[in-house]
């Protein structure tokens, strides 16, 4: 038994690459730790940070984004014990690491799988290629605070989107710790913004925000809340991923759905002539 007094961590938000407290000055108690209780203004700030990061991140090469996602996996691997210490199962942590690796590889392949050369009936060069939607709001799964979180964030950002994530309300500590991983992974500030707090409080602000292009409601088990968030999202025609009809097995092959949900397809025409 040491006499030394442990230095406790302050669990803060992750916005624009920095770790601010909630502007509201509020916190809530989780596993004997005070966790920042984000407000609507924190949502606003996070969206501003996410929007500011879109140009650089979507403009980075796919190779570069893939490298950075792989770097996240490397950093996470080095901290796996820490997540286990927060109550994550080793299997979940391993799967979360591997998920970063899996999505990292998609960065420079999704356009080849999801894009097309179109054989139009005329003298035109014609291709369709996917592009990121922009800023994606995500309500992370409440019951899978690390693997579920990684499984919704990685596919959104690997294609060049930036995200504002509402972390698992009841188990936010892995999300805040993941933020520390992201902050040391060469991921540009603002690409991932993580807010902790009450989804019922911040969710409506995120869903109704006119500068958010898409929203992922995977982590909204409350059907009534999900419906109202989807309604709010209609204000600017956000792309919406609804809560799953049946619980998701986060260890299963995720498929392409979460990548393509936040991609726009751009078709470019040009005449062919001399």
């Amino acid at each position: 038994m040491s006499d030394r007094l442990a230095v406790r961590k302050t669990y803060k938000l992750y916005v624009g690459g920095k770790f601010p407290r909630s502007e509201s000055g509020r916190s809530y108690l989780v596993q004997d730790s005070n966790v920042a209780l984000a407000s609507r203004k924190d949502v606003r700030d996070a969206v501003v940070a996410a929007r500011a990061a879109v140009k650089g991140w979507s403009g980075a090469t796919a190779y570069n984004r893939g490298q950075i996602l792989y770097r996240v996996a490397e950093m996470l691997e080095g901290r796996r014990d820490q997540f286990v210490g927060l109550g994550e199962t080793p299997a979940d942590v391993d799967a979360a690491i591997d998920r970063w690796v899996w999505y990292a590889g998609w960065s420079d392949k999704i356009a080849q799988v999801y894009g097309n050369a179109n054989p139009v009936a005329g003298p035109y060069f014609n291709i369709s290629a996917p592009e990121p939607t922009g800023v994606v709001g995500i309500v992370a799964p409440p019951d899978s605070p690390l693997l579920g979180l990684v499984s919704v964030v990685a596919p959104a950002i690997v294609t060049g989107n930036t995200v504002v994530v509402l972390a698992s309300e009841g188990q936010p500590l892995p999300a805040v710790t993941l933020a520390e991983v992201l902050a040391t992974s060469d991921l540009p500030g603002g690409v991932v913004n993580i807010l902790t707090g009450r989804v019922a409080e911040t969710g409506p602000w995120l869903a109704a925000h006119m500068d958010v292009n898409a929203i992922d409601l995977t982590g909204v088990p409350d059907a009534e809340l999900a419906r109202s968030l989807e309604e709010a999202a209609a204000g600017n025609l956000k792309r919406v991923v609804r809560p799953p009809a049946t619980p998701i097995d986060w260890h299963a092959d995720p498929g392409l759905g979460r990548l393509t949900a936040f991609l726009e397809t751009k078709t470019v025409w040009h005449p062919k002539g001399v």
Partner: peptide
């Protein structure tokens, strides 16, 4: 924008995907 016409405009073809970004739909 979902469709970019370069040196042409208002061309359509069944093999060429058409649709919008942002409030032009999904």
């Amino acid at each position: 924008a979902g469709v970019v016409w370069a040196n042409t405009f208002n061309k359509f073809d069944p093999s060429a995907p058409f649709g919008g970004y942002k409030e032009s739909g999904y």
